[in-house]
Design a protein around this nucleic acid. Structure first.
Length: 772
DNA sequence: AGGTACTTATAGAGT
DNA sequence: ATAAGTACCT
C-alpha cells in the first residue's frame, strides 16, 4: 500500500500505529483520508481487523469509510467494528444483555418515546405536568445519565437535590427512578442507556471488560471533540489495557455541548495519556483562501482552543457574498436565483449546492420557493423518516411483536386502527397490569378473564393478542421482510390511510412503502458474522430478522438514509447535520441576531463560543463559494419577527467579504437569468393578514393573464396538448408537446413573454387558465 | 366507542 | 404554524 496520496503530516499520523495518538485535524485537512489510511495501514502491518474498533459520528460515515478500506486492503476489512457509539454499543449490549437482566431483543426508545413515558409517569405520580414539563425532565435525566449518575446517585446528591428544590422541582429524582423502572419493565433502553449500560457492564463485570479490551486492541475515535463523559469513560476503560487509542477531532468544531459533549475531553487528552503523540493537520484542501481566511478571522474570537493555524494553497477564490434581504421569502428567492445563475453560468449542478440554517423551521420558506422554481432538493434534517407518525405506528407493531413487554408500543397500537377497545377497557387493563406487576400484553393475553371487560371489548382484545402472538412466534424463523410485510398488511394501517380523506395520506402510504423497501434492503445486505474471540464462537448477531431491523432502525438518522432517486439535488440541512460534509457552493441563511446566534445563547459566554464554532463549521463546508444571507423580518412561530444582522457577519475580516443590501427594486439584479423586473415578484395574495409589515416589498403582478387562473395545481394526468397554463414565473403559456410518464413527465410550453421552455411537470406547478 | 371541533402547548441543535 | 390533547356530540 502506498501512502503517496498523503502529505507528510498525514503520513506521520498514519504510521504511528502503536500507543496513544491525538490528531488535531483542522477543517478540510483530509481527516477522513488520514483515518482511512491509518486503519488500512494497521491491517497491512498485521493487525487483525477483528481487533479494531472505529467510532464515527454517523453510520453512513462508517459505511463509507469501510468501503474505502476494503478497496485498499480487501474484504478482510469487513471484520472491523465500525459505527456510531450508540450502534456499536447497542450491538454489544445485545450480545451481553443477560448480564444486565435484559433480553437481547430489548427495544430502543427514541426521544419521543422517552418523553411520552415521562409524561405518563408524571401523570401517574399526580404531579403538575407544567412544573414537570416532559422535555425539561428528559433533559435532566439525560444529562444525569451522560454523567453516569444512576437514579440513586441522583437522589443521594446533595448538590442536585438542593438545586432541584430551589427550582421548585424536588421530585425529578423520583421521576428518574420510576422512569428507569418502567424502561426495565418494558425491556427498553433510551439512547443514553446504551452508553450508560455499557459503562455498567465494563465496571461490574471484570471478565467482560477484559474480553472487550482484548477484542478491541486498537481503538479509533472520530469527532472526539463531541464526546460526552459517558462515551469518554467507555473509551478510557476499553483502551486501558493496550493504550492503542487514536482520537481525531478539532476543538474548533465542537458543537454538541447541548447534549453533554465536553470539549475538555479533547483538550485534556494529553493529560490523560501523557505518553501520547500529537499530530496537527493544518493544511486545508477543501476551500479557497478567502473562505479559509474568513473562517479563521471568525474563530480567532474564541478563547478556549488548541493553538493551530489552518492554511491553504488553493486559489484565492471569490469573496464571501453577504446579502441583507427584506424578508425570508426574498431570502429564499435570492438563494434560488443564485442557484439558477450558477448552474447556467458556472457549469454547476444541483448537487453542488447546500443551503444551511440554524433551526429546522427555517427550511419551510426555502422549500416553498425551491418547489415553485422547479429546483430539485432534498432535506436532510427536520423530522426524521423514522420519527414520522405513520412509521412509528408501524414500528410499534413490530416492537410489540418482537418484545411483548413494550407497554408503550402496546398503548400506541392497541386501538389503532380502531378495533373497539376504548378508554374504559384500557383503563381496566392498565389497572390490573399495575396491581399485578405484569406487562399490558401479558395481562391481556393470560389474565383477561379477570380484568372484567365487556363481551365485545373482550373479544377484540383476544383477537389482537392472537394476532401479535402468532407473529411473535415467527420472529426468529423468518426474515424481517416477509414477516414485516405481513404484519403491515394485518394491521390494516395502509387501509386506514387509504380511507382517510386528507390529501397528506398519500404521502403517508408512500412512506410506509418506503419503509417496506428499507426492510427489503436490510434483508438483502450481506450478513456479517461476529466472532466472539473469547470463546471462539461465531455469533450471528446480525441475522436479518425483524428484531435486528428495528434496533438498527431506531439508531438511524436522516443522514444515514440513502436517496434512491438520483443524487443531483440541492441539500437543505441544519448546520449541525452538515458537520463533516462539503459542497462547492454553500449558503448560510438566517444570519440574524437571536436566530444565529440563538437567543438562548446570548447571556452565556460558553454558549456564545459554541455558536461561533457552529458558524465556523458552516463556513468551512464551502469549497468554492460561500454565500450568507440575513433577512430583516421573518416568520417565526406564526408571527413576523424583526432582527438585526448577526454579529458574526461583522466578525468576518472585511477583506474577505462583499456586502449587498438589497433594495426592493433591484433585489435580484445579481442574477441575469431572471433580471426581468416585471416577473421578479410573486403573487402573495393567498397570504391573508401576515404581510402587513412586509408590503413595501410586494408588487402587484402586472402581466396578469387573460382568463381565470384555477387555484389548484394541475394534476399530471390532466395535461393535454394545447392547454393554456399559468406558471408562477413565466406566466401565461400553452402546452406544445408532452413526453415521459409519471414523475418524469415533461412538456414544452410556449410562454407569451418567455418563449418556449421545457418543464418537468412534477416541479413546474402549472395551473389551468380558464377562458372568461 | 368513535369522530369532530375547539383549546392548548410548543416553538434549539440530534444519537 | 402546527401537533397534540380535551370536550362534546352522534
Amino acid at each position: 500500500m502506498t501512502l503517496e496520496n498523503l502529505n507528510e503530516k498525514q503520513q506521520e499520523a498514519v504510521k504511528y500505529t502503536d500507543g496513544a495518538a491525538l490528531i488535531i485535524a483542522g477543517a478540510g485537512s483530509g481527516k477522513t483520508l488520514t483515518l482511512t489510511y491509518r486503519i488500512a495501514y494497521l491491517i497491512e502491518s498485521g493487525v487483525n481487523p477483528f481487533n479494531i474498533l472505529a467510532l464515527t459520528f454517523t453510520n453512513k460515515a462508517a459505511q463509507e469509510m469501510k468501503e474505502r478500506i476494503v478497496n485498499l486492503v480487501g474484504n478482510r476489512a469487513k471484520d472491523i467494528w465500525m459505527g456510531t457509539f450508540h450502534s456499536v454499543f447497542a450491538k454489544i449490549l445485545r450480545i451481553e444483555a443477560d448480564h444486565l437482566g435484559y433480553v437481547s431483543n430489548f427495544t430502543i426508545y427514541d426521544t419521543e418515546d422517552a418523553k411520552n413515558l415521562i409524561k405518563n409517569i408524571v401523570k401517574d405520580m399526580n404531579l403538575d405536568d407544567k412544573v414537570y414539563n416532559k422535555s425539561f425532565v428528559y433533559g435532566r435525566i439525560s444529562s444525569a445519565k451522560n454523567n453516569l449518575y444512576s437514579p440513586q446517585d441522583y437522589l443521594d446528591s446533595v448538590e442536585i437535590s438542593s438545586s432541584d428544590r430551589a427550582n421548585g422541582k424536588p421530585y425529578i429524582g423520583h421521576i428518574y427512578k420510576e422512569y428507569n423502572n418502567r424502561l426495565r419493565r418494558n425491556m427498553a433502553m433510551d439512547f443514553d442507556d446504551l452508553l450508560f449500560n455499557m459503562n455498567v457492564l465494563l465496571v461490574s463485570k471484570a471478565d467482560l471488560l477484559l474480553k472487550y479490551q482484548e477484542k478491541f486492541k486498537y481503538i479509533l475515535v472520530d469527532e472526539y471533540q463531541d464526546t460526552n463523559f459517558s462515551q469518554y469513560n467507555i473509551v478510557k476503560k476499553l483502551s486501558a489495557r493496550y493504550r492503542n487509542i487514536c482520537v481525531v477531532g478539532d476543538d474548533a468544531q465542537s458543537i454538541y455541548a447541548f447534549r453533554g459533549a465536553n470539549i475538555q475531553n479533547i483538550l485534556n487528552f494529553q493529560k490523560d495519556y501523557p505518553e501520547s503523540k500529537l499530530f496537527k493537520l493544518e493544511q486545508n484542501y477543501r476551500s479557497t483562501q478567502n473562505i479559509v481566511n474568513a473562517a479563521n478571522s471568525v474563530i480567532e474570537k474564541n478563547f478556549d482552543k488548541i493553538d493551530k493555524k489552518v492554511w491553504t494553497s488553493n486559489e484565492e477564490g471569490v469573496k464571501i457574498n453577504y446579502n441583507e434581504l427584506p424578508s425570508d421569502r426574498e431570502e429564499a428567492k435570492w438563494v434560488c436565483d443564485i442557484i439558477r445563475n450558477r448552474i447556467s453560468n458556472n457549469d454547476a449542478k444541483y448537487g453542488d449546492f447546500a443551503i444551511l440554517y440554524r433551526t429546522n423551521q427555517q427550511s419551510r420558506s426555502l422549500e416553498e420557493k425551491l418547489r415553485l422554481m422547479g429546483i430539485p432538493y432534498r432535506i436532510y434534517s427536520g423530522l426524521s423518516f423514522y420519527g414520522r407518525r405513520e412509521i412509528k405506528d408501524v414500528l410499534a407493531y413490530f416492537r410489540l411483536v418482537v418484545n411483548n413487554s413494550d407497554d408503550e408500543a402496546f398503548l400506541r397500537i392497541i386501538n389503532f386502527p380502531s378495533r373497539g377497545i376504548g378508554d374504559t377497557s384500557l383503563n381496566k387493563l392498565k389497572l390490573f397490569a399495575q396491581e399485578n406487576n405484569l406487562s399490558l400484553f401479558s395481562t391481556a393475553e393470560t389474565m383477561l378473564q379477570n380484568v372484567g371487560l365487556g363481551a365485545k371489548a373482550y373479544n377484540n382484545v383476544i383477537n389482537f393478542c392472537t394476532m401479535i402472538r402468532l407473529f411473535s412466534n415467527r420472529v426468529k424463523q423468518e426474515d424481517a421482510f416477509s414477516l414485516g410485510e405481513e404484519i403491515i398488511r394485518e394491521s390494516s394501517i395502509i387501509k386506514y390511510w387509504k380511507d382517510d380523506e386528507d390529501p397528506s395520506s398519500d404521502e403517508r402510504i408512500n412512506n410506509i412503502e418506503e419503509l417496506i423497501n428499507a426492510i427489503k434492503a436490510f434483508v438483502e445486505t450481506e450478513e456479517n458474522e461476529i466472532l466472539d474471540e473469547a470463546t471462539g464462537e461465531e455469533i450471528n448477531i446480525e441475522d436479518k430478522t425483524l428484531d435486528v431491523f428495528i434496533q438498527q432502525a431506531s439508531l438511524m438518522s436522516e443522514m444515514d438514509r440513502d436517496d434512491k432517486e438520483n443524487e443531483n439535488k440541492v441539500s437543505l440541512m441544519t448546520i449541525h447535520s452538515a458537520k463533516g460534509l462539503e459542497f462547492p457552493y454553500v449558503f448560510v441563511t438566517g444570519m440574524e441576531e437571536n436566530l444565529f446566534p440563538s437567543n438562548l445563547s446570548l447571556t452565556d459566554n460558553a454558549d456564545m463560543e459554541e455558536e461561533r464554532r457552529l458558524f465556523y463549521v458552516a463556513m468551512t463546508r464551502a469549497k468554492k463559494e460561500l454565500l450568507l444571507a440575513s433577512s430583516k423580518s421573518r416568520f417565526r412561530n406564526g408571527q413576523i419577527v424583526c432582527n438585526e444582522k448577526s454579529r458574526f457577519i461583522d466578525e468576518i475580516n472585511e477583506k474577505y467579504i462583499k456586502t449587498i443590501v438589497s433594495k426592493e427594486e433591484k433585489s435580484f439584479n445579481d442574477s441575469p437569468f431572471f433580471n426581468n423586473k416585471k416577473t421578479s415578484f410573486n403573487n402573495y395574495s393567498s397570504n391573508k393578514t401576515s404581510f402587513k409589515q412586509n408590503v413595501g416589498n410586494i408588487k402587484k403582478m402586472d402581466n396578469l393573464p387573460k382568463g381565470i387562473v384555477e387555484e389548484n395545481i394541475l394534476n399530471l394526468k390532466d395535461f393535454t396538448l394545447g392547454l393554456r397554463v399559468y406558471h408562477e414565473k413565466f406566466k401565461e403559456g400553452k402546452i406544445l408537446s408532452l413526453e415521459g410518464e409519471g414523475d418524469n413527465m415533461k412538456a414544452d410550453v410556449d410562454f407569451e413573454n418567455f418563449g418556449i421552455k421545457k418543464l418537468v411537470l412534477r416541479f413546474a406547478k402549472l395551473k389551468l387558465i380558464k377562458e372568461n
